[in-house]
């Protein structure tokens, strides 16, 4: 239990995927201009991440390792993720049209979110068990949502700020992200040993 909690805190705050591993930067910059969009994107991503962890773990351990073909890891993971996103999209569309409308174009975009593949790779690399992997997937999603929502809040304020011309747009966004990464380094003391 303690280990699961540690994984949760570590993946969502200390080793935040966006701010320390730079995974999922594209949506982080792309859809962080409005808080509402950021929140929806965060939820969709968290959902797919948890599911990805739950599906890729058995595939890696019961198929790839068993048949001694771990070099097919990348090909099989990416296919699984792409089809998973497709299935989720179809399911959500049928079962809850209102949620589908809210998530809209964000669902298909998730396939190309490198944080999802990164999650599956880190899970294998760190040798997590099944339950740990699911917690890791969920926590990573929470961390992603947190970073995205905070960034969108700052960017909404930035619209009223007087930014020098050459720094406008992407440049100031990265500088803000840098300061956020600095702030998140403060969480490093949360877990000792």
């Amino acid at each position: 239990m303690v280990k699961l909690l540690m994984i949760f805190i570590s993946a969502s705050l200390i080793n935040n995927f966006v701010l320390t591993y730079f995974l999922g930067i594209c949506p982080f910059i792309g859809v962080s201009n409005k808080t509402e969009n950021a929140l929806n994107m965060g939820f969709a991503t968290t959902f797919v991440m948890t599911l990805t962890a739950a599906v890729t773990w058995p595939i890696y351990h019961y198929i790839l390792v068993k048949f001694n073909v771990p070099y097919l890891e990348y090909v099989s993971f990416i296919i699984v993720i792409a089809s998973l996103v497709q299935f989720v999209e179809m399911y959500v569309k049928k079962s809850s049209p209102s949620l589908y409308k809210a998530l809209g174009i964000f669902l298909p975009l998730i396939t190309t979110n490198c944080a999802i593949l990164g999650l599956a790779l880190f899970m294998v690399l760190r040798d997590y068990g099944f339950l740990e992997s699911i917690v890791f997937g969920f926590a990573t999603g929470v961390g992603f949502t947190l970073a995205l929502v905070m960034m969108s809040g700052i960017r909404e304020e930035l619209e009223f700020a007087d930014v020098p011309k050459v720094f406008q747009g992407a440049s100031i966004t990265f500088l803000v992200a840098g300061l956020m990464a600095l702030a998140f380094m403060g969480f490093a003391g949360l877990i000792r040993g």
């Binding site: 730079f22 050459v166 992407a170 440049s171 100031i172 966004t173 600095l182």
Partner: peptide, 25 residues
């Protein structure tokens, strides 16, 4: 030290994008 930490990456990229914008202008 900050430059080799994750935060430094964001700061350097932000600065370089601004530089590219400046040269373009």
């Amino acid at each position: 030290i900050i430059m080799i930490l994750p935060a430094g990456a964001f700061l350097v990229l932000g600065g370089l994008i601004a530089l590219v914008n400046y040269i373009n202008d």
